[in-house]
């Protein structure tokens, strides 16, 4: 009993309630058909949002003004360079992955360099760097769809005991992120900076080192997401990352993390990612038109955030 009440005080619980409602509403409408298939699709597509969402969450946790808008471009560039290097050769998967990680590392470093050395606000710094990154991708890609090696396509589209591989991968990453945020020294430092950067600095937190690592972490996660998304969807395309800009921010907020920083949680990212996918497929199943669907999606998201936020302030 007590544990249940405790659970309802968690900020992320609302996104999971929303997930369950959307899923149940959909399979009631279809008369019980396709429940498992729907769950599988949701897990697959949510997996990519979760990976970028975790990176964005760490950045947003750093406090007001911190945000990474270069996620879509990073996804595109890492996928493009890695897939081009592998050239559909299954033996080169590991070096290909390293190239993707290297892109993430470079982007994170460049972003923080702009923020720190040129004193540009993060929103502008990452926006302008994303133009540079996207241009590099265009230059390298030349508008073609670059095919992934077959091994990777097989890995990203198959499942273990009914759970998609990409979902397993992103679950492992989420667990790691949870422990980093909640238990590690680095996580404590990120949370401290997000509450009051000056106070954190005066308490001995190496502020620049932590912020740098966080932007790099975000870049690397975006690169990983791009790498596997391209393998899953049959190749790297220039617009492959576009929808993940807003998604990465939305899953952080819907998941119950504070936009003002200093207070974040990882489970909510999973809840929100599943929810965003399920809302759209629920409305599709109901057969509503595209315009109504967008309006409904917006209204439902507002409802979930209000519900979760209202609970928090009551406490």
């Amino acid at each position: 009993m007590n544990n249940v009440t405790l659970l309802f005080h968690k900020p992320w619980i609302w996104s999971f309630i929303a997930v369950l409602s959307a899923w149940v509403a959909t399979i009631i409408f279809t008369g019980g058909l396709g429940g498992a298939g729907l769950a599988q699709a949701a897990l697959t597509f949510a997996a990519f949002s979760v990976i970028v969402g975790i990176g964005q969450m760490f950045v947003i946790t750093l406090g007001p003004g911190n945000i990474d808008l270069s996620i879509p471009a990073t996804m595109t560039l890492s996928a493009t360079l890695a897939l081009k290097f592998m050239n559909t050769d299954g033996a080169l998967v590991l070096p290909g992955l390293l190239i993707a990680l290297g892109v993430g590392l470079a982007v994170g470093t460049a972003n923080f360099g702009l923020i720190k050395l040129l004193k540009i606000p993060p929103i502008i710094a990452t926006l302008s760097s994303s133009f540079l990154i996207q241009s590099t991708a265009i230059w390298s890609n030349r508008g073609l769809r670059i095919k992934p090696p077959e091994v990777l396509t097989d890995f990203t589209t198959s499942s273990v005991l009914g759970v998609p591989n990409v979902a397993l991968l992103s679950f492992v990453l989420a667990v790691a992120a949870y422990f980093i945020l909640m238990r590690s020294l680095f996580g404590r430092w990120v949370l401290a900076i997000g509450q009051n950067m000056r106070a954190a600095r005066l308490a001995g937190v190496p502020v620049d080192g932590v912020r740098f690592s966080t932007y790099v972490l975000c870049g690397v996660l975006a690169a990983v997401a791009g790498f596997f998304l391209a393998s899953f969807s049959g190749g790297a395309a220039l617009n492959m990352g576009t929808e993940y800009l807003l998604t990465s921010i939305a899953v952080v907020v819907i998941g119950g993390s504070s936009v003002a920083g200093g207070n974040s949680n990882v489970p909510g990212i999973w809840g929100a990612s599943l929810f965003l996918f399920l809302v759209v497929s629920m409305l599709n199943t109901f057969g509503v038109g595209a315009g109504v669907r967008l309006i409904m999606t917006g209204l439902i998201i507002i409802a979930v955030i209000t519900l979760a936020g209202g609970r928090k302030s009551m406490k």
Partner: peptide, 9 residues
């Protein structure tokens, strides 16, 4: 409040 306390903790 400016230099010391981390208010959410």
């Amino acid at each position: 409040s400016v230099d010391g306390v981390l208010p959410l903790w």
